[in-house]
Design a protein around this nucleic acid. Structure first.
Lengths: 351, 351
DNA sequence: CAGTTTGGTGACAGGGCTGTCAAGTTCAGG
DNA sequence: CCTGAACTTGACAGCCCTGTCACCAAACTG
């Protein structure tokens, strides 16, 4: 086993590496004082701080991360761990996390996990990743958020982490999410208010726990509103193809539902394709709505009515939680969602 | 100016940090020998290597990156710099780069650039990013690939980089791409062979240089094939909305084109939406084809005929180029593309 | 006004690793 | 059996910071 078989020869980073010593010399202070200024430590007089800052600016000094993390015990790196769900979702989260990092002089490291491998192997892979990564904290996205082995390991090792949209044990650790139940309820009300009474809903994969929350919230609310006919359920699998399949299935029924709620946008797009295959117009013949307000919601025609969830903001919030230690709050913090009514839903045709 | 105003308190990384010294002791060799094994340096006897590797395995030792990069002058980090084009494209590249990093015990750092800010500010931002990042090398994606200020800076600082799909000065530095011209030519031939003679093509944004290569290759080839009628051109802007707009425009013409080539998948999806708005069936009434074979090509119905470009592979190749120093090849390395004929193209209706 | 606290600063010792160089070992050729 | 080249190994300094502790000055206390 060789830990590193290739390598870049020494690279001259930056031009003429300025070190803290240069700054100290120029400012006429000690090394430690420069360090204090850099780390915003207390007990630094304004005069000294000014001198040092001037010197830093003049020399265009940037502290060496490697040295910093060797000396201190922080790496100034946040790790983002994700599996491979929708690229849009991931990208948005990543953007949010990135911005929070940047704002705090942190760096973002990516670790991409492949969950298609056997469970055993996955665990080994995960643990090795985290061990090797030496990050100051991790942001976890679903479905990694619910990997108990991983969580146990992180906690046992004293590594901080924040989960985005965790499903299980929401109070176990800090988390960021939205109220999927309530969001789905809002969609139910929207369809109900439009006048729909024969409604279909597409399940997501069982492993994606938000999916079931959405399903539950939707069904429950329709029940409360007084829907008497049985709700039609089918499996949309959270994918375009799944949406086509489930959509066709549901549209073939007699009587046909007048509205279909797919619990994510990808499958909703699939449903719209199924409609077009069946020669049905959206929203005239069938209303279709999704969930997520992802990129694809505006890459279909008509534009999709969906639920906006602030994915990028969730990423930002997660990273911030990790960075500001002051607030060691446990439990899920819920962010605001809202209904985005676009063109794919309308009142059912008068019969 | 404070360089770091927040911070994580010292985190106990891993459990009971094993250091190289532990390994050396257990193996009964010197520190340096362990180092040699870890770095696969020459002049290490098989016996010694075996002892050390056994010790490493037993202790579950992982070298400390910070210390390594402080002592050596490598950071074991590859930076991926991107602007915000299509999330799908970016994600694929990222995945490829990530995998190459992982395979070489490197880490991937992300830096997201926002090119919507004024040019001046952008440059400052870019340079600061690169300086702060302290990476062993950077992978650049369009349009950053053609930012001469950035390239100059990197070269002046002796920082290695590889460009993905660079447009300008392809021989300036190592690069990875495909032959966009030839790929568009293949699409031209496909449509020609199907029997289309009245064809429209949608331009991409002028800033995206691959767009013009595709356009040129397409037009040129149709000319060579003997297309006599004038080709219809419109501006698709590489976006769904642009595709709808340009699509409607083109479809309103009389006589109507029988095939539309959008130079990326997003705008092709828009064209398909425009067809559906106009009550036209794809591919019966109009053939539509795109370019990229991105996620969206299979999130529309009918599935889109398009050109596959190995985006993930491009990312992998770029990172590998950065990592294996042996091959300091300059100039663009072209990867294979291929036509993906799906359901959105067919022979024109007999008139 | 002596006797404490507090605030501000610096000296110094590592942190875990790699580069350099020197020492020890092996083996071919004379 | 000796010499030098080539290989193998190790000692040690140093990469650039931060934590600890010690110091001195100023600002309190009763």
């Amino acid at each position: 086993m060789s830990l590193a078989s290739t390598g870049l020869a020494s690279t001259a980073h930056g031009i003429g590496h300025t070190t803290m010593e240069d700054v100290a010399k120029l400012a006429g202070v000690s090394l430690k004082s420069v360090s204090r200024v850099i780390n915003s430590e207390p007990h630094v007089s304004g005069k000294l701080r000014a001198k040092v800052e001037a010197a830093i600016a003049e020399l265009n000094y940037v502290p060496d991360t490697a040295a910093r993390s060797l000396a201190g015990s922080r790496t100034f790196i946040i790790g983002l761990l994700f599996d491979n769900p929708s690229p849009n979702y991931t990208m948005d989260i990543q953007k949010g996390v990135y911005e929070a990092c940047r704002a705090n002089q942190y760096h973002l490291r990516i670790d991409n996990v492949d969950s298609t491998v056997p469970r055993e192997q996955l665990e080994t892979q995960l643990l090795a990743l985290v061990r090797n990564s030496r990050c100051d904290g991790f942001v976890l996205t679903p479905p990694l958020t619910d990997d108990m082995v991983l969580l146990d390991f992180l906690e046992r090792s004293g590594i901080r982490y924040v989960r985005i949209a965790p499903a299980m044990q929401p109070d176990r650790s800090p988390g960021i999410g939205i109220d999927d139940r309530a969001a789905a309820a809002a969609m139910a009300r929207h369809l109900w208010d439009l006048g729909h009474r024969r409604i279909a809903v597409l399940r997501g994969p069982a492993s994606h726990s938000a999916a079931s929350l959405r399903l539950d919230g939707f069904i429950e609310t329709l029940g409360e509103l007084g829907l008497e006919q049985t709700l039609i359920e089918a499996d949309g699998g959270f994918s375009f193809d799944g949406g086509i399949r489930a959509g066709s299935e549901v549209l073939a029924m007699n009587p046909r539902p007048t509205a279909i709620f797919a619990t994510n946008d990808d499958s909703a797009a699939g449903v719209m394709a199924a409609c077009s295959q069946a020669g049905l117009k959206v929203p005239e013949d069938v209303s279709v709505c999704g969930f997520d307000d992802s990129w694809i919601a505006r890459s279909v025609w008509p534009y999709l009515t969906t639920v906006y969830q602030p994915v990028e903001e969730m990423g930002r919030a997660a990273a911030s939680l990790l960075l500001r230690r002051d607030e060691p709050e446990h439990g899920l913090r819920l962010l605001d969602f809202h209904l985005v009514v676009r063109d794919s839903t309308a009142p059912p045709k008068a019969v």
